[in-house]
């Protein structure tokens, strides 16, 4: 159903940075190269894309008075006080800790439960196999927004997990599971049957094969779904908004609340926001290949 028809494992051969057929072209003809127009357009795109981010970063180095006097100016003089205040603010570190712990728990649960579920769906033959897989596929169609109010009631009242790390991580992991299973299953299906058979002949059990043969071989897939789950949790807003208060808040909540609470302190808000961007950007740069190939793999026909 839906997008899943397009899903398939992404090997390094599919990596966007190693396009197939990088055969040298005869003389950089106008066909593949870039003229001034192309470079001009590229520059405009860079400016529009990075503009807001750079504005935020530079704005954090200005004073409010500078920002009001000339919104488009550069820092003059450079003020480091805004950033210092954010970095020395214990609240900020509290939010960062909450974001990290929740993202780690979410990722761990989603990846472990996901690969476990994907394994029999890929390697066993049984009657309910496809119907069971459809359960996960259908799960993709349920947005968190649909379930948010009952989730709020379930977690705060029935489970008593309101305002806790687990209260956010468990439902987030549950909502990450469909994607995880759907991406991992083809990875597992692609494993050569001979490997398993050899292990069985050597007396390995199914679970042993899963742990010692299948898991290491699908490690790249695990990293991809792990990064996707981590980033989704790190950026999540709606669920934390309803479930977390005060010092349990995550970074997105902290940023949003800070910006409404201290709306007059534009420079402070910009500094706070800029610092809050850094972890996601660093993670992205470090994991770029994985994120990109995961997303592309999800859509390629």
């Amino acid at each position: 159903m839906t997008t899943l028809q397009e899903m398939r494992p992404v090997s390094d051969a599919d990596d966007p940075r190693t396009p197939r057929g990088r055969a040298p072209r005869q003389r950089g003809s106008s066909f593949g190269g870039g003229g001034p127009l192309v470079y001009g357009l590229a520059l405009a795109v860079v400016a529009l894309t990075l503009g807001p981010v750079v504005y935020g970063a530079l704005g954090g180095f200005r004073s409010n008075e500078q920002l009001i006097r000339d919104p488009a100016g550069l820092p003059d003089p450079w003020v480091t006080g805004n950033y210092e205040r954010v970095v020395t603010n214990p609240d900020f570190w509290g939010y960062a800790l909450n974001s990290t712990v929740i993202a780690v728990i979410t990722t761990a649960i989603a990846v472990i439960a996901g690969v476990m579920a994907a394994y029999p769906l890929a390697r066993y033959q049984f009657r309910l196999r496809e119907p069971l897989f459809m359960v996960f596929v259908l799960g993709l169609l349920f947005p968190v927004a649909v379930a948010i109010i009952p989730l709020f009631i379930l977690i705060t009242r029935d489970l008593g997990l309101g305002n806790t790390w687990w209260g956010v991580a468990l439902p987030q992991a549950a909502f990450a599971l469909p994607t995880t299973v759907v991406i991992l299953r083809p990875f597992l299906m692609a494993l050569p049957r001979e490997l398993e058979e050899a292990a069985f002949i050597d007396g390995a059990s199914r679970i042993g094969v899963f742990r010692h043969i299948a898991l290491p071989l699908v490690a790249p897939g695990l990293v991809t779904v792990g990064v996707l789950a981590f980033v989704a949790s790190w950026n999540a807003y709606l669920l934390p908004l309803l479930l977390l208060q005060d010092d349990m808040r995550t970074l997105p909540l902290g940023v949003a609340d800070y910006s409404t609470q201290y709306s007059a302190d534009t420079a402070g808000v910009l500094a706070f926001t800029t610092i809050a961007m850094i972890p996601a950007l660093v993670l992205f740069l470090a994991m770029q290949r994985r994120i990109v190939s995961g997303l592309q793999g999800a859509v390629k026909g």
Partner: peptide, 27 residues
């Protein structure tokens, strides 16, 4: 197209997608 700095350009174009909607929204 085979333009200079293509890899970097690709990274830059993707930056906003990685930021939290909230953070992009506040900026």
């Amino acid at each position: 197209r085979r333009i200079r700095g293509r890899g970097l350009l690709r990274t830059i174009v993707f930056v906003p997608y990685v930021l939290a909607e909230v953070i992009a929204g506040v900026v």
